[in-house]
Design a protein around this nucleic acid. Structure first.
Lengths: 300, 300
DNA sequence: TTGATTGAGAACCGCTGCTTATGATCAACG
DNA sequence: CGTTGATCATAAGCAGCGGTTCTCAATCAA
């Protein structure tokens, strides 16, 4: 049995006329006869009762018509799904996400993706601070949202947002009333930060910049798990430490015992970018990237 | 796209190995490659990611696998239904039924049919007293349950039950205490009966037999619609008339003001038979007929 | 490097499914 | 009652497709 057989059967059943059925199928009438006869032979059942003047469904034909239609419906469904997969309006995109992004960014991005392609299943997976998740993890990811920018052959990327790092200060602290702080003024203050081992390059870059701006005596460092922004900020709120943070991270922190101050003399910006393999991208990924870039343009 | 394509796709997806898939499909390996490639071309999607050492489903392949399986399931369902239709364990049988059968007979027969073939839809339709519903109504019926026996070429029949006609008498009537009645003793009594026009041959046969046995002055006749046994019996219960009835009809009549008496001198038996076209019978009809005859044999 | 494994490509061939032409049958109609 | 038209089935021919076998290319293990 074949889809061709079923299609032929269904159309003849609808027309009850071999000639018209043939016209609808864009084939000649004898082909229709042959196909129906072939199906009847294979099933061992008469599907139609033909007089030379009228064609009628047999009871068996009536019973099988529904089944045949459901097969064809499923086939159409399959083709439709293939179409959507091809166009990128359906599918699955695996997104690698680094922790410690601006707190609302991921949900914003997911909303953008959902709006652009509701039937695309976006699976965001938090990865450690891997230099290049796209190629590094056996290519299991289609898209990556990272801090910094990837420099690798075949990898395209776009900056999603860039936000300056400042200092989270307890409301009771002597610096809390300032407009901004200098690097040097952090001297001797206890700091809450992620452990150096979690992202040595980032860690060293930050303190190199601060040192260059005059911070020579770094105070004690309270380590919190990477990505655990709240843990650091609770220490700050308790007056136990200062912490390098994004303004949005402080804003998102519920309790109000913390003040965010920009640096006056150094620029510690966090750049968040999206990256994907430029050569091999699934249609769904391509569509998400397009949605992302048009969202960025529109937001200027 | 073709069922062959889908089957091939599903098997390869299950085996993740073209050679083994070919073995399961009982074809050579290149045919499997060609078929899968053909499907991928048609859909415009890569379904598998092949290294020479490993075969994996792509995301698109994973998404389509379920669809493909559901198509194949429906196809299997269709073939299974065809099989059952061929064997007669599924289908539809149109049964022509004459009114005025013994009251419980039809439900008994339907129960027998249901037990023999639960998935066969038995549609009983009451027809007037047509001499031969099998051929007379454009052959729309597969089976007929009738009074009397059909004598027609190509029609097979079997007697289902035969039951004597007696007289339903009001409990207060002078005859009510008799063991039986003679034809002559009905002389002058008002009778409740179906109108002669409903079945002239039957009507005339009955009264000819009664006349031959000595009934020469038939009383007034109250007509009830054919098949309206209760209407006649209510007249009897009210003492307004006698009525020719089957014992089972009187037994089935709820109220108890009616007595059934057999005839002492005439034999007015109702024969109920099932009839079907001997040459063209659908498998389901054949199965029901078989069930009926084995039920009759077993009931001896 | 060598051998084994595995998927893809090439060449061939028979079956199948489409075509056109024709036949058979029945209803409608003059 | 023969004729005509409509309709489905059959016949014969041809092209394409799906299968085969043989072979190659790439990769991994030894």
């Amino acid at each position: 049995m074949d889809i061709r057989h079923l299609k032929c059967f269904v159309v003849v059943a609808e027309e009850l006329h071999f000639g018209r059925a043939a016209a609808r199928l864009h084939i000649a009438q004898p082909a229709v006869s042959q196909t129906v006869i072939g199906l009847e032979r294979e099933l061992g059942l008469a599907l139609f009762e033909r007089t030379n003047r009228r064609v009628e469904l047999t009871d068996a034909g009536r019973a099988l018509l529904g089944e045949a239609r459901s097969v064809l419906d499923r086939v159409d469904g399959t083709l439709a799904l293939a179409e959507r997969l091809r166009l990128g309006t359906a599918g699955r995109v695996n997104v690698a996400v680094t922790p410690a992004l601006p707190p609302t960014l991921l949900t914003e991005l997911l909303a953008v993706f959902r709006a652009a392609a509701p039937d695309v299943k976006v699976v965001a997976k938090s990865v450690g601070d891997i230099p290049d998740p796209l190629t590094g993890l056996g290519g299991r990811f289609d898209l990556a949202i990272l801090r910094g920018q990837i420099q690798a052959p075949g990898i395209a990327s776009v900056v999603v947002v860039t936000e300056p790092v400042g200092v989270a200060v307890p409301a009771s602290h002597r610096l809390a009333s300032s407009e901004s702080v200098s690097a040097r003024s952090l001297g001797g203050e206890p700091l809450a930060a992620f452990p150096r081992g979690a992202a040595p390059a980032e860690f060293d870059r930050i303190f190199a910049v601060l040192a260059a701006a005059g911070l020579d005596d770094v105070g004690e460092i309270h380590e919190s798990p990477p990505g655990a922004v709240d843990a650091s900020l609770r220490l700050v709120a308790a007056g136990e430490a200062l912490s390098l943070k994004l303004r949005s991270e402080v804003d998102a922190f519920g309790s109000s015992g913390v003040v965010w101050l920009p640096f006056a003399d150094v620029d510690l910006s966090v750049v968040v970018s999206a990256a994907w393999r430029f050569d091999v991208t699934s249609p769904a990924t391509r569509r998400l990237v397009d949605a992302l870039s048009s969202w960025l343009n529109q937001r200027t």
